[in-house]
Design a protein around this nucleic acid. Sequence first.
DNA 1: AAAAAAC
Length: 497
Amino acid sequence: MITTTLPDQNAAEQTFESFGLDARILRALSEQGYTKPTPIQAQAIPVVLLGKDVMGAAQTGTGKTAGFALPIIQRLLPMANASASPARHPVRALMLTPTRELADQVYDNVARYAKHTDLRSTVVFGGVDMNPQTDALRRGVEILVATPGRLLDHVQQKSVNLSQVQMLVLDEADRMLDMGFLPDLQRIINLLPAQRQTLLFSATFSPEIKRLAASYLKQPVTIEVARSNSTNENVRQMVYQVEDGQKQAAVVHLLRQRAEQGLSKQCIVFVNSKIGCSRLARHLEREGINAAAIHGDKTQTERMQTLEGFKNGTIDALVATDVAARGLDIADMPCVINFDLPFSAEDYVHRIGRTGRAGASGDALSIFVPGDERLLADIEKLIKRSVPRGTLEGFDPTGEKARQEDSDRRRQRADVRRARGNGDGEGEDRRRRHDHGGSRSAFRPSDDPFFSRPYEPSPNSASAKPADEMIAAALSRGRQAPKRPVAALLGGAPRKS
DNA sequence: AAAAAAC
């Protein structure tokens, strides 16, 4: 085997053979083309093989999944097809993830690494039919990958038994806390034997995460591949300031500029709201860019199709909410654009963590408008460095000219529509169909030239709001009850010993 | 300010 010696402090000269992994696992690895462990794998595999608890700081794309999956498979091998009756469906290893897509990806990896063994695995997550999942669980699996909500659903239906779980993985644990999964997590963990091995992975080590670790891990070994809360050195970060209402044009400009420079067109554009996400995707498409939106109001099928399209290259710009900020394993993402600066600085770290992975270089570009000062300051404080300010070559940040052309074009389109008598009904998302489905016409706010054109303050109203906000306010329904603070929940939790 | 996740 050829190993490249890098000036790397941890992983130099190491091979998968040197961990003493079973020949069946090594065979699967070589079929996958894996030759040399990544730094996180080099650190995690021996520790997990020893049965120790692990607190791991690593983002997706560092090879983290193999870092826990390989040693777990190794440790479960003696139990494959063991005497336990399948009627008891004893799950031995449970891997929990915050999003459905991540669950699916982790499962996909596990299944590939274990393909030459007798170990069985499956994945359960929401948004899809429960019955096939129930059937798989009843047939019996040693390794189960799941999102918390659907797993509890199966637990209630008694289609799975967690009393024999010896290994628990909490993947992207910080995200699970952000998403309010702590109560579900606690309910699940209470069903597991206290005697078990627990691995917790998180991109950031917030106080809440440390607290979670203190509750559920026993003398964990800490593994870090990068300084916590830091961003990758090989990612070129940049912010571009434009006027309010020029953000869409700025993104179009950035994407075209990259295409002209012969850079890869593939790009994730992050947006803060689901509505803004759909709107930007539509705008990019109108500008002739292959774009698609992915967010939580899309059906699971749409989400999977969009991701597939992005992976096979029919989609260049994936416009996403933070559903895609963490965990989506998209190889070699050359560029991430923040259309909106994220509300939380930690989300910035996660978003730009989609690029520059496994040593590749990447661009993380952010659009900045007046009013974003605080958000940017928080980000720079967290990553402990300033993000360089760039200028968009050949772009008019006030957008006077573009605004004029744009509104002319929109007026023409509105005329055409009036002549036709209704909207065109293309690509809507569930929320919107729901809210407007029963109305007398196919009217949608985005069809109205007023809502679509760049924001201009109304001359008679000092409190005019940008179109985005107006639409968001008009469509917002069914708000969730405020979350209880994480610390309060942890404080009230029964402590595992 | 928002997003995500069980029916």
